[in-house]
Design a protein around this nucleic acid. Structure first.
Length: 551
RNA sequence: GGCACCAUAGCCAAGUGGUAAGGCAGAGGUCUGCAAAACCUCUAUUCUCCGGUUCAAAUCCGGAUGGUGCCUCCA
């Protein structure tokens, strides 16, 4: 595959130094707060890269650090009256809570700065011994004048940088060059510290990543990744320190992802315009956030708004409903290949999809294009499923392809929560004898009655019969009764309305809505879903009972 | 001021020399108690603008305009 290398500013063939084994380092979070959707982008993007490399059959050693000692951590901890360590511990736990939910694989190693002090000191010592670093009265500084290629990653001209730095940076007295940066900061009152040959203190930010990369992955690694804002000075400094210390190339491919913007401006905590993933998860499922991020190429900036996430919810449903539908139709489809035109078309679509998907992923991880390829298969599969002349194996192959390839993106369309929740309600309703006796007029009356009687405020003007029945595990949805219908059996349907759709009240049928139609058309009875034991939560049972009281 | 990046439909977004993917929204149709879903059709003769190179440009070059980021902690 090809990857855009920030160092050379062009796409290059991505080959590991050690055949079949990629060594990747991703700059991890500074653990002083919940991370926001902008912070999440690199985690999601590089996790996807990792999944793809694994899918291709490679081994991947993936390191993502926690910066658990830093000005921000110290300030926040002091403010809350706890130790830096306590704050970091808590926030690392919160990181995993969100990251796991975003389906971000745990790194092979999650090193922490405070647990890497020995490695850091060792490198600082090498730098001092080699004359690349010098001691002042407030710390140990790296001397960029001893590293001639400084600026090669960011493309900055040294003179310009110095000019800029001189204007802004006031504490230059101790430094030989205004661009020199601290690799070790001597302790200050109220700050945690560790011993070093030059005095007690704590590591500078940049040296942490260098040390953790060198210690865990070796002197030369394949990929080092992070947000574009880290290019300078963070990554530039990492190169200088690491290469000055080892004398070897530090990183072979540098990858930088674009920002998540709000109103076309960078999302940042200092700017105050940010949404934490935790807050967003109250309104959107985690997999929607992940899918949203992957819909754009990773190097492009993406704008962020509820409106865009709403569109993502709708498009994601197109995928999940197709996947569910295929499984259902396959149950009654011919067992043997039909040799029909439709069957051939579907098989071709699967082949085309795989080809286009891989090409897209190979081209600098173009997930946007890869997703487009998958949508084309969704369309072809829906067409095939509705033709009635495609065999079960062919339908299931299409379904498996979708699940597999979306799975590589870390967003699996099977086994989603909304499907599971609706399944449970479907099973319960199916058992309700009173429902079997309704006719349309009665059903509509019931529907309206529920709407008016139960939850007036939720009924949008001009619509009848939507009433939240239960709140499901997935916080995105209110489950609403939309319609009760009777067609030669107990047939009724649910209508999902996303809370976020607000007044638009875009009603979306659950994935198995198509199951109902198919069942009706084929005349087959029951057996739509496996009737096994099921449990309702107390609140589900309660709300359902309220609804049934109107029958 | 210096250095980068970006500009594609109502919205989002691929496409980097061969005649505009995909999603959302919208319109018409098929199907259907109504509705929804699904499927079909339509929705940018044109890619911010102006020049240039080429048989051929959204794509390459030059310029203009607009936007963003970095140069200070930042994903």
């Amino acid at each position: 595959m090809k990857i855009y290398n920030s160092l050379t500013r062009q796409k290059e063939d991505l080959t590991p130094l050690e055949s079949g084994h990629f060594k990747i380092y991703v700059c991890g979070p500074t653990v002083y707060d919940f991370f926001h959707i902008g912070n999440a982008r690199p985690f999601i993007v590089y996790d996807t890269l990792r999944r793809y490399l694994l899918w291709l059959g490679n081994q991947v050693t993936y390191v993502q650090n926690f910066t658990d000692i830093d000005d921000k951590v110290i300030i926040r901890a002091n403010k809350e009256g706890i130790t830096s360590k306590e704050l970091a511990e808590t926030m690392i736990g919160e990181y995993f809570h969100d990251a796991d939910a975003l389906n971000i694989m745990r790194a092979s190693i999650h090193p922490r700065a405070t647990e890497s002090i020995d490695d850091i000191v060792r490198i600082v010592k090498i730098l001092v011994d080699k004359g690349h670093a010098y001691v002042t009265d407030d710390g140990v500084y790296f001397s960029i004048d001893t590293f001639p290629s400084y600026g090669k990653l960011s493309g900055h001209n040294l003179d310009d940088l110095i000019a800029g730095a001189s204007e802004r940076v006031s504490d230059t007295e101790n430094k030989r060059n205004p661009l020199d940066f601290a690799v070790w900061k001597f302790k200050k009152e109220g700050e945690p510290f560790w011993p070093s040959p030059w005095g007690d203190g704590r590591p500078g930010w940049h040296i942490e990543c260098s040390a953790m990369s060198l210690a865990n992955l070796g002197e030369t690694i394949d990929i080092h990744a992070g947000g574009v804002d880290l290019t300078f000075p963070h990554h530039e400094n990492e190169i200088a320190q690491s290469e000055a210390a080892t004398g070897k190339p530090f990183v072979r491919y540098w990858m930088h992802n674009g920002f998540v913007n709000i109103n076309y401006e960078k999302m940042s905590k200092s700017g105050g315009n940010f949404f934490t993933v935790r807050d967003l998860a109250e309104r959107y499922p985690y997999h929607i956030l992940r899918f949203f991020i992957l819909q754009a190429h990773y190097r492009m900036p993406i704008n962020f708004s509820d409106e865009l996430l709403d569109a993502t919810v709708t498009s994601w449903k197109r995928i999940t409903s197709s996947v569910d539908h295929l499984a259902f139709v396959a149950k009654t489809a011919p067992k043997e290949a039909t040799k029909s035109e439709e069957e051939q078309a579907l098989q071709d679509a699967v082949t085309t999809c795989r080809y286009n998907w891989k090409n897209a992923m190979d081209d600098d991880l173009n997930t946007a294009d890869a997703i487009a390829a998958l949508f084309e298969l969704v369309r072809a599969a829906n067409t095939a499923a509705s033709s009635g002349d495609v065999s079960a194996p062919a339908l299931l192959e299409a379904r498996d392809t979708l699940i597999e390839l979306f799975g590589v993106l870390g967003a699996s369309p099977s086994d989603t929560k909304e499907a599971a929740c609706l399944l449970r309600l479907w099973r319960l309703w199916k058992q309700e004898p009173r429902l079997k006796a309704c006719d349309y007029s009665r059903a509509d009356a019931i529907r309206d009655g529920i709407g008016e009687g139960l939850l007036k405020s939720k009924i949008p003007p001009g619509r009848t019969g939507t009433a939240p029945l239960t709140r499901m595990d997935d916080p995105l949805y209110d489950c609403s009764i939309s319609t009760f219908a009777w067609v030669g059996g107990a047939v009724f349907e649910l209508c999902i309305r996303t809370k976020l759709a607000g007044d638009k009240t875009q009603a979306r049928s659950p994935p198995w809505r198509q199951n109902l139609s198919a069942r009706r058309m084929s005349g087959a009875d029951g057996a739509l879903l496996n009737d096994g034991a099921f449990d309702l939560t107390a609140s589900e049972r309660n709300l359902l009972q309220q609804a049934l009281n109107f029958l």
